[in-house]
Amino acid sequence: MKNLKVDVTDLKKNFGDNHVLKGIDFKVATNEVVVLIGPSGSGKSTLLRCLNRLEEPTSGKVVIDGNNISDPKTNIDQARENIGMVFQHFNLFNNLTVGQNVELAPVELGKMSKEEAVVAAKKLLNTVGLDDKYDAMPQSLSGGQKQRVAIARALAMNPDIMLFDEPTSALDPEMVGDVLAVMKDLAKKGMTMVVVTHEMGFAKEVADRVVFMADGKVMEEGKPEDVFDNPQNERTKTFLEKVINV
């Protein structure tokens, strides 16, 4: 693989006796969009959270941009500045306005002056279609709006990879489209993305590669058309039948 961005080798993660990841090898190239699919409990979210060490790996190696994330000596705060993350439940800072949510990290971490951050925040909110919400409090927004603010917040640090952890699962159906549109736009601009989702349409349309996980292992991966139209693994077949027939 050329321009290797993410390189995960033999990653294992246990929660007590529960072996959630049982030896994952996983690679992502620069500018690639990878979608992780699989039944719940398969370890997709845990894999994603190991990429920025929100979960401490039990063993194995996670390297991003040549930076060994799984090494305790690595300055994880610095590494995270380049890894944006979007959560299922948005996690907007409830004590700050929308604008402050976006501006906080770049200003606190000395990436921008306050004035620069305000300009950048307004621009980012404009690209996600929420420039009129700059002074609003997160509590007053709908789920779809919150998630678009969360994307803008992650982008404000100017990351070169974005992790999405089921970004549309907590949304009302009519909100899903707006959020996916923002993500498609981002993919078009060449952002490296790892997306955990149940939106098969999005996977087909946007993903460069689809990775199917079950029982803490990667079962199958490939181009979306190959995985969706001609799955090789039995588990993949059963899963896709269930998801697509719904």
Partner: peptide
């Protein structure tokens, strides 16, 4: 989730505590 979001942006523990 508030702490996770703050940490995921690269804010250190102490500053996430204080600001969020």
């Amino acid at each position: 989730g508030q702490m996770e979001a703050a940490r995921s942006l690269g804010l250190p523990f102490g500053r996430s505590m204080r600001k969020i």
